[in-house]
Simulated scan of single mutants.
Amino acid sequence: MEKTRKLGRTDVTVTEIGFGGGPLGGLFEPLDDETAAGALDASWQGGIRYYDTSPHYGIGHSERRIGEFLRGKPRSEYTLSTKVGRILIPQEANGRMDEAFQVPATHRRVWDFTRDGVRRSVEDSLTRLGLDRIDVLYLHDAEKHFDDALRDGYPALAELRAEGMVSAIGAGMYDPTMLTTLVRETDVDVVMLAGRYTLLDQSALDTLLPTCAERDVSILAAAIFNSGLLASARPTEGARFDYAPASKALLDKANRIADICESHGVTLPEAAIAFPLLHPVVAGVVIGMRTATEATHNLTSSTTPIPTQLWTALHTANLLDPRAPI
């Protein structure tokens, strides 16, 4: 099994490598149930015991698939997280596809961070998962609804934690400044940060990482490949950075990092997985996985020993923020 770390001041543990459920919702391209099940099985066989999902991912497909898989596993052996902020309302698909995932548009999303909305979202998630509890609950993608999430969503999560319905609470976002505000003004346990503490972007070092260290709040680093640019040993034109084609400057930077990795016997994805875990507040990295091959590859990459000299060389070449611990 993968190494585990605790989340904040809670007793909740996660494996250093977590399974990100976004691709199981048909992100970028359709995905069948059999392939999804294969990815989940390979991740479990490889030692992953932390699974993250959301109603947003494939308008429920990801939760359903993860739930079907985990129902066959002992409940004490894994940690499960999902998210709130969007309610799924049934509708006639009429041949249309969902706006964000490659699945039929059988539901529409309605933003709702109210207490009632949060509780309804949790009930709906438990129904789709077919499980009796969620371990970690996040406010999801609240950047454009931050005031609502802070004023109404956080207290609703804190209430669920006090009632014992969930064991840890936090938020999953890409904006480190807003997450810093949340950590400073509330009593969250963990935040899931997308794409802002990676080999290409360490902007979370400005305020979020130091604030989490002060408040004893854990970070789970998601989107560590920045949606594709760091996912291959040699990035090529057309690779995505934050869901859009990467600029030439970013592509060049990624290849400069890849050159240094190669000179130390390491691939770019191996370094991308290892880097966030060097920071003491990062409890784990969460990687989206679509197939058994992807899951096996990611797990193999996560076990590659990384020489300290690699990080030193990246510092020396000004390719890493000098504040990043190595």
Results as ranks from 00 to 15, higher is better:
residue 246 A to P: 09
residue 269 P to N: 10
residue 247 S to Q: 06
residue 264 H to M: 06
residue 252 D to T: 11
residue 251 L to M: 05
residue 290 R to K: 13
residue 281 V to A: 15
residue 240 R to S: 14
residue 256 R to Q: 05
residue 240 R to I: 07
residue 279 H to D: 09
residue 274 A to T: 03
residue 282 V to D: 06
residue 265 G to T: 02
residue 273 I to L: 15
residue 274 A to P: 03
residue 256 R to C: 00
residue 247 S to D: 14
residue 281 V to N: 10
residue 282 V to I: 15
residue 282 V to N: 05
residue 262 E to M: 04
residue 263 S to R: 14
residue 244 A to Y: 09
residue 245 P to A: 10
residue 268 L to W: 05
residue 272 A to V: 03
residue 264 H to G: 07
residue 250 L to P: 00
residue 241 F to I: 07
residue 288 G to N: 14
residue 284 G to E: 12
residue 258 A to L: 01
residue 283 A to G: 15
residue 249 A to F: 03
residue 253 K to Y: 00
residue 265 G to F: 01
residue 243 Y to P: 12
residue 275 F to V: 03
residue 253 K to C: 01
residue 249 A to H: 06
residue 242 D to E: 15
residue 266 V to P: 03
residue 248 K to W: 04
residue 264 H to C: 08
residue 276 P to W: 08
residue 257 I to C: 02
residue 263 S to W: 01
residue 258 A to E: 00
residue 285 V to Y: 09
residue 289 M to L: 15
residue 280 P to M: 11
residue 270 E to V: 04
residue 245 P to G: 10
residue 268 L to D: 08
residue 261 C to R: 00
residue 258 A to P: 01
residue 269 P to M: 10
residue 270 E to I: 04
residue 264 H to E: 10
residue 248 K to Y: 02
residue 241 F to L: 14
residue 268 L to V: 07
residue 256 R to M: 01
residue 284 G to H: 14
